[in-house]
């Protein structure tokens, strides 16, 4: 997933302006000219300068003149996802990983660690083209190992589900 530099540049400029405006709500130190907003403002100014330079660099990539530059410019569309279109399985896997983490965030407290981790592992092993039996055994094994290592050995209070583990 490649973006043109100008897209990053514009995003950084907008982000930095919003950040600087927000820092105006920070108080100054008592009796001083300095305060909590100074450093974030400096960062924001830096981001605006870098953002402007990225916009210029992105614009240059798109207005190519020589054949070599043209070849580069083809790679410099605002968003390049061409590589992704050729491999739908990989794209699905990418989002399955993100969704698995979100599933953990939203359901681990309700379902408990063991059920959540086992479900995530089983889905991922299967999505990555491992055999059904191998995926089941590997998911069970890894759930057990992580529960033992963190839950039992390191005493991390991993959430307990409706089944009591």
């Amino acid at each position: 997933m490649k973006f043109n530099d100008a897209v990053f540049g514009i995003f950084l400029i907008v982000f930095a302006i919003a950040e600087i405006i927000y820092t105006r709500t920070f108080p100054a130190l008592h009796g001083q000219r300095f305060g909590a907003s100074d450093f974030p403002v400096l960062i924001g100014v830096g981001l605006i300068i870098c953002g402007c330079l990225l916009v210029v660099s992105g614009y240059k990539q798109r207005t190519a003149s020589s054949p070599i530059e043209e070849a580069i410019s083809k790679e410099s569309n605002l968003l390049t996802i061409a590589g992704w279109r050729e491999k739908p399985r990989s794209v699905i896997n990418f989002f399955v990983v993100i969704l698995s983490i979100l599933f953990y965030i939203f359901f681990v407290d309700t379902l408990g660690f063991v059920i959540t981790a086992f479900s995530i592992l089983l889905v991922l092993f299967l999505r990555l083209q491992n055999g059904v039996v191998a995926s089941f055994i590997a998911a069970l094994f890894m759930t057990g190992v992580s529960k033992l290592l963190f839950g039992v050995w390191l005493l991390v209070p991993l959430p307990i589900g409706p089944l009591g583990f």
Binding site: V97, V108, A117, F125, A138, L149
Partner: peptide
């Protein structure tokens, strides 16, 4: 690697959870 990556992901999830003892660590990790 197709056998390792899911295992790494689960270690990442538990590892991040272990630091804050809440899913907030997992949110930061993501």
């Amino acid at each position: 690697s197709r056998m390792l990556m899911p295992a790494i992901l689960i270690f990442c999830l538990v590892g991040s959870f272990a630091i804050t003892n809440s899913v907030f660590g997992v949110v930061i990790m993501l």
